[in-house]
């Protein structure tokens, strides 16, 4: 193990040829500055969630909270505890939905991407082009045809209507296919000579190599499924998701300004947490991702 980590360190250092110390410092300072700028609105959102009501409405507005309080959060839980369907049910719904949809999306898109990238067969080019084009159509006008299809399938008011379309996203296939190109064909050929089937090659060889790609896709996919409200497809209250329940809380109007700041923070914190965990996993495997041949 020691030799492995040593070689990993060596590989990392050797990559930094031709780097001047001054350049590195300037680079870091620049990024730190820009990073602070990017974070400003986030900090504002966090700070607002802890503001008491009078500070939220104070004029002129303040950036930072003066007397932080958890009132907004306790108000939110009070509101949610009086709701007809318990809060935990909404949470459970969203977690299940996001987990299943994300897993399905990654696997189904990767399978299709692998074949489209590595094999030429009748129709493969046309199919791929259609996916690339689909990325550019505005989703706003497809709502009605989509509803009609769901109704025809009797999927209205079931999770199938939310999960199944989320399995096959054009962006997922496009992303995975672009990365699959970096897997050398010779690797696949030699695995075939060793008698490995396509599924084994896909699962044991290709997927580990394109790990950064599907880690990225997990983030995209989780981010979009976590924010799913159920829209026009879900009517039963006990099937509704966390975002739709929280948006109902906000219907209370201006009196719930404090609560809405708490909601905004809660809704964004989970995807960011998922993102951070997946990023730290990227770190772990960084050393092995250089292995190609």
């Amino acid at each position: 193990m020691a030799t492995k980590s040593a070689s990993r360190a060596a590989r990392h250092n050797s990559r930094l040829h031709g780097r001047s110390r001054a350049g590195n410092t300037v680079n870091f300072l620049f990024l730190a500055l820009m990073g602070a700028f990017m974070l400003l609105p986030m900090i504002y959102a966090v700070s607002s969630a802890f503001k008491p009501l009078d500070e939220l409405f104070v004029f002129p507005p303040r950036f930072f909270v003066r007397r932080p309080t958890l009132d907004n959060f306790s108000d939110l839980f009070l509101l949610m505890s009086t709701s007809w369907v318990p809060f935990t049910r909404y949470l459970f719904n969203t977690v299940i939905l996001a987990a299943v949809a994300t897993a399905g999306n990654v696997i189904i898109c990767s399978m299709a991407a692998y074949m489209l990238e590595k094999r030429k067969f009748p129709g493969s080019r046309v199919l791929y082009k259609s996916v690339e084009l689909a990325l550019m159509f505005s989703g706003a006008v497809t709502a009605i045809p989509n509803y009609l299809i769901m109704a025809r399938l009797h999927w209205i008011d079931t999770y199938l209507a939310l999960m199944i379309p989320a399995f096959a996203t054009p962006i997922g296939l496009f992303l995975m296919k672009q990365f699959m190109g970096s897997v050398h064909d010779s690797l696949i050929e030699s695995a075939k000579l060793d008698g490995a089937g396509e599924w084994r090659i896909f699962w044991r060889i290709v997927m580990p190599i394109v790990r950064p790609a599907w880690q990225t896709l997990i983030i995209f996919s989780f981010q979009s499924t976590w924010n799913m409200t159920g829209g026009t497809f879900i009517f039963s209250e006990e099937l509704k998701t966390l975002p739709s329940a929280l948006s109902q809380v906000l219907q209370g109007g201006i009196a719930r300004t404090g609560v809405s700041c708490a909601v905004a923070l809660l809704i964004m914190i989970i995807p960011i947490a998922v993102f951070i965990t997946s990023e730290s996993r990227v770190l772990e495997t960084m050393g092995t991702s250089g292995i190609k041949e």
Binding site: M111, M115, S124, A134, V141, I149, A168
Partner: peptide, 28 residues
């Protein structure tokens, strides 16, 4: 026939994709 396995690999994606993306886009 030679590429049956390839079609099986892409089938889940493209079935869903055609029903829930291509069909609505063409309708629009």
């Amino acid at each position: 026939a030679r590429n049956v396995d390839a079609y099986l690999f892409i089938a889940p994606f493209f079935l869903i994709f055609f029903v829930f993306t291509v069909l609505p886009v063409l309708t629009s």
